[in-house]
C-alpha cells in the first residue's frame, strides 16, 4: 500500500508558462475535495466545540470543550470507548498473527496464479461489509452451519449463541481487516531481498532466529503501517458491529446512530439495556407492558413477513 510514484516526485525541469498549466490541471480536483471533504470536517469540528442545551434539544454557539470532557468522563461513553479499544486491540493482534504467514506466502510465491491469490484477498474488501455480514449470519445463526455441524457431530446439544454477541463482532471485524493487514505486510516483504534470508539460513540460523533477527526487523515498516491501519479501521467499524452485534452492542460508530434512535423513540424490548433514567422514563416499557410482549412465532412471522417489513420501512423508518 505504498505510493512510490507519488513519493518520488517529478523529475522534469521547469519551463516558462508551465506554472499556469499546472495550476489549471490540479486546481479543480483540489478545490472539489477541499469543498466536499475539508469544509465538512472543519464544520464538524467547530460544532464539537458548541454547547448543547438538552432541555431545548438545541445547539448553541459557544467555544467549549465540555463535549469532549463529557465524552471522556460520562460512564456511558467511557464504557463504549473501552469496549471499542479492547476489541480493536484484540482484532489488530489476531490480524497480525494470521496475516503474516499469508502475506509472506503471497510475497514470495512464484506461482502463475499469484494475481488470483491477490484478487481473492482484495475482492471481499470491495464487495462491502453488508454482504460479508450476511455470510457470517449464515455461518453463526442458531440453525447456521457452525451450530448445525457441531450438533450433527454430537459435540453440543444446544446451539451456541454466537450471533449478536461480542464473539460474532470480533470474528466479523477480523475478517474485514485481515486483507488490509496482509496487503500492508506483503508490499513490504516483497521489497526485502530474498538473499538476505538465505544468507541467514546458510550461516546456520534456524527459521525462528531468521524470522526474529532478519525478517521481522526488515518488515517492521509494514507491520507498523498494517497495525495502525487495522486498529483505526477496527475503531471505526460500522456495519459489522451493527449487523453481527445487534442493537445492544455498542461500539463507537453505531452508538452515534443509536443516540439518534433513542431520541426518535426507539423502544428497547430488553430490560438490561443501559439507558439513562430520564430517557428510560420517557420511552421504557413498564412491567405490565412487558408482560404483553410475546415471543416470536416464526410461522406467523414468515407468513406476514412482507407486510411487516413494508410497515417497518414505511411507518417506522420513513
Amino acid at each position: 500500500m505504498t505510493d512510490a510514484a507519488l513519493a518520488r516526485g517529478p523529475v522534469v525541469e521547469r519551463r516558462r508558462g508551465e506554472g499556469w498549466t499546472a495550476a489549471a490541471l490540479i486546481t479543480p480536483a483540489s478545490i472539489f475535495v477541499a469543498f466536499c471533504l475539508l469544509a465538512p470536517i472543519a464544520i464538524l469540528f467547530r460544532f464539537s466545540l458548541n454547547e448543547f442545551v438538552p432541555s431545548k434539544k438545541l445547539m448553541v454557539e459557544a467555544l467549549t470543550v465540555a463535549n469532549y470532557v463529557k465524552f471522556f468522563t460520562d460512564p456511558y461513553y467511557t464504557t463504549i470507548l473501552a469496549t471499542t479499544v479492547r476489541i480493536a486491540v484484540l482484532v489488530t493482534a489476531v490480524c497480525l498473527v494470521l496475516g503474516f504467514p499469508l502475506a509472506y506466502v503471497v510475497a514470495r510465491t512464484q506461482s502463475r496464479f499469484k494475481h488470483l491469490l491477490i484478487i481473492s484477498i482484495v475482492l471481499p474488501l470491495f464487495v462491502g461489509n453488508a454482504v460479508r455480514a450476511a455470510g457470517w449470519m449464515t455461518v453463526f445463526g442458531n440453525k447456521g452451519f457452525f451450530n448445525a455441524t457441531l450438533m450433527g457431530l454430537g459435540v453440543i446439544d444446544q446451539p451456541l449463541e454466537i450471533m449478536f454477541t461480542e464473539k460474532a463482532v470480533v470474528i466479523g471485524i477480523i475478517a474485514v481487516n485481515l486483507p488490509f493487514m496482509v496487503l500492508s505486510l506483503q508490499s513490504v516483504i516483497e521489497g526485502i531481498d530474498r538473499s538476505v534470508e538465505e544468507a541467514a539460513f546458510s550461516l546456520g540460523a534456524p527459521p525462528a532466529t531468521m524470522f526474529r533477527r532478519v525478517l521481522w526487523p526488515l518488515a517492521l515498516p509494514g507491520v507498523l503501517a498494517g497495525t495502525i491501519l487495522t486498529f483505526v479501521l477496527a475503531m471505526n467499524a460500522y456495519a459489522t458491529p451493527f449487523l453481527l452485534g445487534g442493537p445492544l452492542f455498542a461500539m463507537m460508530a453505531p452508538s452515534a446512530q443509536e443516540g439518534f434512535a433513542v431520541d426518535m423513540g426507539y423502544n428497547p424490548t430488553v430490560t438490561n439495556a443501559k439507558v439513562p433514567p430520564d430517557v428510560q422514563k420517557r420511552i421504557g416499557f413498564t412491567e405490565e407492558e412487558q408482560k404483553r410482549l410475546r415471543d416470536l412465532d416464526y410461522g406467523y412471522m414468515a407468513k406476514n413477513d412482507t407486510a411487516f417489513q413494508e410497515w417497518w420501512n414505511k411507518s417506522f423508518k420513513g
Binding site: 494470521l98 484477498i121 475482492l123 454482504v131 466479523g172
Partner: peptide, 23 residues
C-alpha cells in the same frame, strides 16, 4: 506449516463470501 497457516488466513477472509454464495 507455513502454507497451511496462509491457507487458514485466506479461508477466513473468503469464508463469508463462500457461505453467502452457498445460501
Amino acid at each position: 506449516a507455513l502454507n497451511g497457516a496462509a491457507a487458514v488466513a485466506l479461508g477466513y477472509i473468503l469464508m463469508p463470501l463462500v457461505f453467502v454464495v452457498w445460501l
